[in-house]
Design a protein around this nucleic acid. Structure first.
Lengths: 249, 249
DNA sequence: GTCTGCGATCTTGGTCCAACAAATAGGCAG
DNA sequence: CTGCCTATTTGTTGGACCAAGATCGCAGAC
């Protein structure tokens, strides 16, 4: 009978293109996702209880819990005591957290991040100079003005990031915005370091205003120059060594 | 090193912003990460067994397993039956998978991704025109020439992506490269669609060669034009509706 | 005596169950 | 309406069993 078992296993493996090594947990993850889809559940809706899920899919509660841990790590489920697992929209946060996990293992330098920002925001400028409407630029002004109300270093950093995020979002490209937001924790910390050394809300506000004016004037050269200078200004607080490429534009 | 230290502090601060309502599972995730750090374990090294971890950290084995499921979802651990949990370098894959999770492929996202690529690769070009060495450009040629050897559509898509990846990597910015690689599954899928409609290795190779020549000539206008045309060429197979912003530059 | 081959045993992850603690929604009494 | 109580649900633990690989030891061959 052991030969029969081997034969069956071989046939099963042959039938399914992917190895038949699907664990019950992985199967449950898929089944729960299918359940969400077929019931057309939306953010905020609750899944069945762990015990019900176990009975529904013929699995033990611990197995269900392990599957829920994975879904939780993916940010598509949030489990609240007594209520159960509810569908969450924390997916982006999960991606961000995972991304910073990586940087923990192999830390990228701040200079690298600033170089990245220069490329992104310069590229955005090329688009904005051609397509930004007056309302877009007024919106940038409004976001920028909010910086003046910030009190703490932390608030100022958030406000600063909000401006640059608004700038990037004006390009209207979701992928670009998502990748920029991925670096939010690193970018805001760069800002915190700079602002802790010397609180400069007014300077920041003015630098941003000049950038907006360059956009209004459709002056690409001025935009690139002002943006680069603005990014370099923050750099002076975090290190002195030469940038490893892509720093100069 | 100071920059690394600050970077780690940024990550830690960001991770610790949540209240002290840590569950035993979350605590275990941290403890296991600390264990890896303090024992200086490297990729391929094995963690203690689940039972040992439970005894070490005063936790039940099921709790340990739930923590391992999270680490597994993060791609920093791979658990091989009868061997144990070993440190894995699949983290980037996990990030990629998570990133393109639920961001299901739709024509709109195709256009979005191509717009993203235009911004990125144009920005890279600004840097390359000023700083690329002859060796860099020769390397691009070599990568490009490999496309001619590709047989299947899948190989051709991989080769195409390899060229653009090499282009981006020449900027020398790790953050930029990481974010570009994040979109690898989506980008290669776009390429597959285009190449399935009409196998065009030679056309692709020629378009790439022209782009390289523009870089050799330090001709920014030609580079942007050729690159845009090249990206638009792939677009014609994926949809017809107007791009929602950031498509024209 | 030493080496090899084979099987028993041990270890380890995979899954499940039972039990208890903690938290809380919802009902119930005042 | 308020405050308490209970039932339900998640959080956590320990234990049990299984399957499969790793290990060890024993017996037989050279």
């Amino acid at each position: 009978m052991s030969t029969d078992a081997v034969m069956l296993a071989a046939m099963a493996a042959d039938a399914a293109q992917e190895p038949a090594k699907v664990s019950a947990v992985d199967r449950l993850v898929e089944q729960i996702r299918d359940l969400v889809r077929e019931r057309a559940l939306v953010i905020g809706d609750a899944l069945p209880t762990e015990r019900d899920l176990g009975e529904l899919f013929q699995a033990g509660r611990n197995t269900v819990r392990e599957a829920l841990q994975i879904l939780k790590a993916y940010g598509i489920v949030e489990v609240r005591p007594k209520i159960g697992a509810v569908l969450s929209d924390r997916h982006e946060d999960a991606v961000r957290k995972l991304f910073s996990f990586q940087n923990d293992i192999s830390p990228a330098s701040f200079l690298d991040v600033q170089g990245y920002r220069r490329i992104i925001e310069t590229g955005v400028g090329d688009h904005l100079i051609l397509h930004a409407s007056a309302a877009d630029l007024d919106h940038l002004d409004a976001v920028n003005d909010r910086i003046l109300q910030n009190r703490s270093v932390d608030e100022a950093a958030r406000g600063d990031f909000a401006f640059h995020e608004a700038l990037v979002s004006l390009a209207g490209n979701r992928t670009l915005l998502a990748s920029y937001r991925l670096l939010q924790p690193v970018i805001t910390h760069i800002m915190r370091v700079g602002k802790a050394a010397k609180p400069v809300q007014i300077d920041t506000h003015q630098a941003h205003a000049q950038i907006i004016n360059a956009l209004r004037a459709r002056d690409r050269v001025a935009y690139v120059y002002l943006l680069s200078r603005h990014l370099e200004f923050g750099l002076q607080f975090v290190g002195t060594e030469a940038a490893p490429g892509a720093q100069g534009s």
